[in-house]
Simulated scan of single mutants.
Amino acid sequence: MGAQLSMQTAAVIGTQAVPVARSNLSIVTICTKQKRFKPSPAGTPAALTAATQADLAAQWIAVTQSLPRTTVAANLYAGRAFGLARDAAMVTAAPLFILSAGLGLVASDTPVPAYGLTVSRSGAESIWSKVIGPFDASRWFAALTKGPHAVGWDKVFSPGSGRVLIALTRPYAVMIAPTLASLPHDDLKRLRIFGAGLSTLLPPTVREAVAPYDDRLDTMMPGTRSDFAQRALLHFAQHIAVVARDQKGDAEAVKCALAPVRAPLRPTRRSGSDADILTLIKARLAPGASASRLLRQLRDEDYIACEQGRFTELFRQAKAEDCAS
């Protein structure tokens, strides 16, 4: 990996942040629904026969084994959150790993297939549509660790590596909590976890690893709730990890960095129906319009709350309807 900052990262961290190689870090982030390569139905739960969770896991591992490798994992996933984590790894010369609901824990340079699978209850790629009986996301992830593309945590916590930075959302925290809890004591002390509202979802032995970032990060490094964890990870990698400290020392350093900062005032936003939001998108749908810019307008000018993934789907729908008209 080189040390060239992307425009995206430069905009987030500001011009004063200087890339510094720190190869004693390892960075772990979650996969994204957005991917650069669209899977065929053979690479989604549509290829599976309804069964119990254990049987589905075996089926899915066989599917991923048979699919052609499309690209390396670092190039498969898209979206701002993933880009921030990838850039954090690049500018610190750290190895990058991806937590995937479809492939397990994957090294960024591993050749992987185009696939689409989520452990969320809804969506066309949800594994829930094929499950007979109960489903447990943590057991699903544990099964994927035996898959053809996955590595074990021992690869992340390799001898000579230092702090391990993990960006998580709440669903992913639930999914990997048991595997984190099973780590050796010395590895747990090297963990630094980033994300909002995670502590109550993690076992007591893991909670101390959660870095105490809060809404004040939005003043220092503006972004959305969906990329909070990756922004916190990037800030830590650039500004906190420059000094070697233990877990408690790193937490105190984060608190000191946040102390002089005020959280931004947040406007009250109302909810909007899909029909309402589609109407607003179509009214602003001009050549070259981007989903991110229109989402910002929706939130800042219309004061309508809309989750990024939902807006992206509505944006695509509006573009398709506009082309058909």
Rank of each mutant, 00 (worst) to 15 (best):
residue 2 G to L: 09
residue 20 V to D: 14
residue 23 S to G: 13
residue 25 L to P: 00
residue 30 I to K: 06
residue 30 I to F: 09
residue 31 C to I: 03
residue 35 K to L: 08
residue 38 K to M: 13
residue 42 A to V: 09
residue 50 A to W: 06
residue 53 Q to S: 10
residue 62 A to D: 15
residue 65 Q to W: 07
residue 67 L to K: 03
residue 70 T to Q: 15
residue 71 T to C: 14
residue 75 N to Q: 14
residue 80 R to M: 08
residue 81 A to L: 05
residue 82 F to M: 04
residue 82 F to W: 09
residue 83 G to L: 05
residue 85 A to N: 05
residue 86 R to N: 08
residue 88 A to H: 01
residue 91 V to C: 08
residue 92 T to N: 06
residue 94 A to V: 04
residue 103 L to E: 10
residue 106 V to D: 00
residue 113 P to Y: 10
residue 114 A to L: 07
residue 124 A to F: 09
residue 128 W to K: 03
residue 131 V to T: 15
residue 132 I to V: 14
residue 145 T to Q: 15
residue 153 W to T: 01
residue 154 D to W: 04
residue 154 D to F: 03
residue 159 P to R: 00
residue 160 G to L: 02
residue 161 S to K: 01
residue 165 L to T: 00
residue 165 L to C: 09
residue 166 I to C: 10
residue 168 L to N: 03
residue 173 A to D: 14
residue 174 V to K: 07
residue 181 A to C: 12
residue 182 S to W: 07
residue 183 L to Q: 01
residue 183 L to C: 03
residue 183 L to W: 02
residue 185 H to W: 12
residue 187 D to W: 03
residue 191 L to T: 00
residue 192 R to Q: 08
residue 197 G to I: 07
residue 203 P to V: 05
residue 205 T to K: 11
residue 214 D to F: 07
residue 219 T to K: 07
residue 222 P to N: 02
residue 229 A to M: 03
residue 229 A to C: 03
residue 230 Q to P: 13
residue 236 F to V: 02
residue 248 K to V: 14
residue 251 A to R: 11
residue 251 A to E: 12
residue 255 K to S: 14
residue 255 K to T: 13
residue 259 A to S: 12
residue 259 A to I: 04
residue 260 P to I: 11
residue 260 P to Y: 10
residue 264 P to M: 05
residue 267 P to M: 02
residue 276 D to Q: 13
residue 280 L to Y: 06
residue 281 I to K: 00
residue 286 A to E: 15
residue 288 G to I: 09
residue 293 R to Q: 13
residue 302 D to I: 05
residue 302 D to Y: 11
residue 303 Y to D: 11
residue 307 E to R: 04
residue 312 T to Y: 12
residue 313 E to H: 10
residue 314 L to Q: 03
residue 316 R to C: 08
residue 318 A to D: 07
